[in-house]
Design a protein around this nucleic acid. Structure first.
Lengths: 194, 194
DNA sequence: GACCGTTGCCAACACATGTTGGCAAACACT
DNA sequence: AGTGTTTGCCAACATGTGTTGGCAACGGTC
C-alpha cells in the first residue's frame, strides 16, 4: 500500500487527498445512504474543502461511482467440489464484506438511488451468473439459480448489516455459514421443482 | 371501504383528504424512499397544499409513521401441518405485499431511515418470532430460526421489488414459492447444524 | 343570522444542499 | 530566479427542503 502499485500513471501529488476523500465517502455512504451522506460531511471527515470533492470527482454521482467500485472477487468455482459450492460461496461472501464497507454502501444506496441499483444488478447479474454458468446449459435456469442465490445472500447482508436484526447480528459467521450453505447448495445444483 | 368501519370516532369532514395524503405518501415512499419522497410531491399527488400534510400529520416523520403502519397478518400457524409451514409462509408473504406497497415503502426507507429500520426490526422480531415460537422451547434458537426466515423473505423482497434483479422479477410467484419454501421449512423445523 | 371550529391555500422563513469561480500558496521545471 | 501548473480554501449562488403563520371560505349550532 505504501509503495507504488502501478508506475504507468504520473502519480500526482494529490493522490493522498483523493484517497482520503474516497475512504470518507465509503464510510458515509455505508453509514447514511446516498442522500443523507452529504458532500460537506464527507469533506469534513477527510479534512478538506468540499470544493475539492467536486474538482476530483466531478459531482456527487461521480464520487459515488468511484466509491462504489466493487468486485465480488469470486473464486474459481470449477476447482471446487460441486457438493461444497454453497459453503464456499457463503464463506466467501461473509468474509468479503465483513471487512469492506463498500458493499454495505452499495447496498444502502441501492434502495433509493437508481444508479446504485443498476450497478447492483450488474454485479449480481454478470459476475454471479457468470460464475454459476460454468455448469448447466439452460441459460434461463442458470439465471434463475443465480437470482435465488443473490436473494439469500443479499437478504443475509440486508438483515445483518442494514436492518441489524438482533439474531442475525449476534450469530457468528461460522454458524450462519452452516445454516445458509445448504440453501445456496440447493439453489445452485438442486433439481428444479416441477 | 366506503362506509364507516368504526363509529366511535366523530368522522371528520377531512377524512377524504387524510386518506388521499396517506395513499400518495405510501406511493411516494415506496417508489422513492424516505428522503427523496418530498412533502411537496406527496401533496401534489394528493392535490392539496403541503401545509395540510403538516397539519394532519405533524411532520414528515409523523406522516411516514402513519404511512408505514403495517401488520404482517400472519395466519395461525398452529393449524398448519408442520411439514407445510415453509410453503404457507412464502405464499402468504408474496400475496401479502404483492398488492400492498406499504411493505415496499418500509423496506426502501429502512435502508436510510433509522426509525424505519427500528420498525422493521419490531415487525420481524416480534410478529414473526411470536408466530414461530408456538413450537420449540429454546428462545435463542427460536429467534435464530425467525431471523433466518426473515433473511430469505426480505432478500426475496429486496431483489424482486427494490433492486429488481431480472430473474427475480420474471419468475412467477408460484415458481418462487416452490424454490423458496424448502428453505424456510428447514430454517423453521430443520435440525440445527452442529 | 351570528358565532365558532374546521378546512384549505398562499406566502414566506430558515436552513441545508450541490455546485461554481476566483484567488493565494506550494510546487515543478527550465 | 521565473513561469506555468497544481493544490487548496473561501465565499457565494441557485435551488429545494421541512415547516410556520395568517387569512379567506365553508359548515354546522344556537
Amino acid at each position: 500500500m505504501t509503495s507504488s502499485t502501478r508506475s504507468t500513471q504520473p502519480r500526482r501529488r494529490s493522490d493522498a487527498t483523493r484517497a482520503a476523500i474516497l475512504r470518507a465517502a465509503r464510510e458515509r455512504f455505508a453509514a447514511d445512504g446516498y442522500e443523507r451522506a452529504t458532500i460537506r460531511a464527507i469533506a469534513a471527515d477527510a479534512q478538506i474543502d468540499p470544493s475539492m470533492v467536486m474538482r476530483y470527482y466531478g459531482s456527487k454521482e461521480g464520487l459515488f461511482a468511484a466509491a462504489a467500485e466493487f468486485d465480488l472477487r469470486l473464486p474459481d468455482l470449477t476447482s471446487v467440489p460441486p457438493a461444497r459450492l454453497g459453503e464456499v460461496l457463503v464463506k466467501h461472501f461473509l468474509a468479503r464484506w465483513e471487512g469492506d464497507e463498500t458493499l454495505v454502501a452499495l447496498l444502502r444506496a441501492a434502495s433509493t438511488n437508481p444508479g446504485a441499483a443498476e450497478r447492483m444488478r450488474g454485479i449480481f447479474a454478470d459476475q454471479l451468473t457468470g460464475a454459476v454458468a460454468t455448469f448447466g446449459a439452460d441459460p434461463t435456469l442458470t439465471a434463475r439459480r443465480a437470482g435465488l442465490v443473490a436473494s439469500q445472500i443479499l437478504g443475509l447482508a440486508f438483515t445483518r448489516y442494514i436492518v441489524r436484526l438482533p439474531p442475525m447480528v449476534d450469530t457468528t459467521p461460522d454458524e450462519l455459514v452452516s445454516w445458509v450453505a445448504p440453501t445456496l447448495q440447493r439453489y445452485l445444483t438442486g433439481t428444479p421443482p416441477s
